[in-house]
Design a protein around this nucleic acid. Structure first.
Lengths: 243, 243
DNA sequence: CGTGGACTTGACCGATCTCAAAGAAAGTGG
DNA sequence: CCACTTTCTTTGAGATCGGTCAAGTCCACG
């Protein structure tokens, strides 16, 4: 049942047969590490590190898959493409995130880099073998899926029932939580179009809403990709649709 | 990691301490049984059967959960409610479907019956115990989650990037596949409002689109809740956005 | 039959999309 | 390091899809 994902974009990837052992398993905080999974020592040794440039495809929807990935630096997006070019971003990935889940041996989304990225790639069969022997790993995998699940369902509510302002407010808060920031400064590695494709909006609508939020003094843009959440409780009220 | 779900609506449920053993595990077809899970003999004996009337809450979002459920007859919906009354249906449930996944011990959606329903309820801790001993069960659970996953991501695309006509077309095809029908006659147990809340539309829009589809001769309404898919390839073209 | 809820249809409105263009940032090559 | 190009972002004007409100119709059920 554990399957994986395939294919580093050939010219973008810089394979490195580094066998360096990421020794201590460093238990990741359960609360903030929504999509993170502790990889035991035995695992880390099995993985190879790859460096991938920005805006490259890591793997594509539908491809036969043979690997799992863990991202160690940079940001990426998981998306579904429609034949006419429409795109829905299903999730963003940040350092520590584990990805590459598959169904019937094929990837069910496309993974693309947003920035330059470093990933560790694991062989599907090696991990499966380990899972067969170690129930703990399997349980962690289930827990991981379960958390993803919760995130997906919140995403469904956003797409199905919230207006543009609510969506953007929810997104900013979500991202801040994902990144585990304690202060109110938010780094947005992705562009406005990526945000739009995550929220089921357009580029322009995201811009307009951000402008409105600035005017309302709920946020302050320090730069294009740095936003200060000035009034987080007001943002939260917006995001929840409390009004 | 395996958690469960709680609380049969008190006045709606009719507890029956039936210990009847659903003997043969009857392996369910992998292809069509998207959300179904084989429950081993040992499991079935642990479950109790409940009868619940239509339009009742089986359990609510946020409640502490102690059970899993398997639906044996009727239809139900899983939904998320917003404070102001907006509602997003996350999934529909049909006979054979297994549900009650939780996060951190709480339900993360509300389950409500659409028709009169019969469910088998399992104790969380008993199932967990069994899972600890039987890797197979755990793997099945993972596989189940993984399939749900795929469905959720398709749902995301529908909500984020498809227009009303595409959504309804996709819904009809999806439902037909879910119900495993070989002919082109579709039974819709749910009302138009439920469909709307699943698709992120309104009642009225669903009606208007259905009317358009009738006029285009893509479907034919035999009754309110029985629809004949007359031109399935055209529906599919619509649903995929192939124009 | 009569009643209530679900469904359908119409008219109108508005949030968001589309199209267009200007402005800002980032990458490129000399 | 600067000029050039490209890409991303922002803002505006107009179009449109789907929502809202309202009325009418159809069933299901007592």
């Amino acid at each position: 049942m554990l399957h994986a994902a395939l294919a580093i974009n050939s010219k973008a990837s810089t394979a490195q047969t580094s066998k360096r052992i990421l020794s201590s398993p460093q238990m990741i905080g359960a609360a903030s590490a929504a999509r993170q999974m502790e990889i035991p020592d035995a695992f880390q040794q099995l993985g190879k590190e790859f460096h991938i440039a920005r805006n490259q495809t890591i793997f594509s929807e539908g491809e036969i898959s043979t690997h799992y990935y863990k991202i160690t630096s940079g940001s990426a997006r998981l998306c579904k493409h429609m034949p006419d070019g429409r795109r829905q971003i299903v999730d963003f990935l940040f350092p520590g995130d584990f990805f590459g889940f598959t169904q019937m041996g094929s990837n069910y989304f496309t993974a693309e880099t947003i920035t330059d990225v470093v990933v560790i790639r694991f062989q599907q069969n090696q991990i499966e073998h380990l899972c067969d022997e170690r129930l703990l790993v399997h349980q962690q995998y289930s827990a991981l899926l379960s958390k993803h699940f919760m995130g997906l369902q919140n995403h469904l509510v956003i797409l199905g029932r919230q207006n543009a302002m609510e969506r953007v407010a929810a997104f900013l808060l979500l991202l801040q939580e994902r990144l585990g920031r304690t202060n109110d400064l938010l780094d947005l590695p992705m562009g406005r179009l990526d945000i739009a494709d995550y929220l089921g909006l357009t580029n322009e609508t995201v811009c307009r809403v951000l402008t409105k939020l600035k005017n309302k003094k709920l946020i302050k843009a320090l730069s294009l990709h740095q936003i200060l959440l000035v009034n987080k409780s007001a943002l939260r009220a917006l995001a929840e649709g409390d009004i």
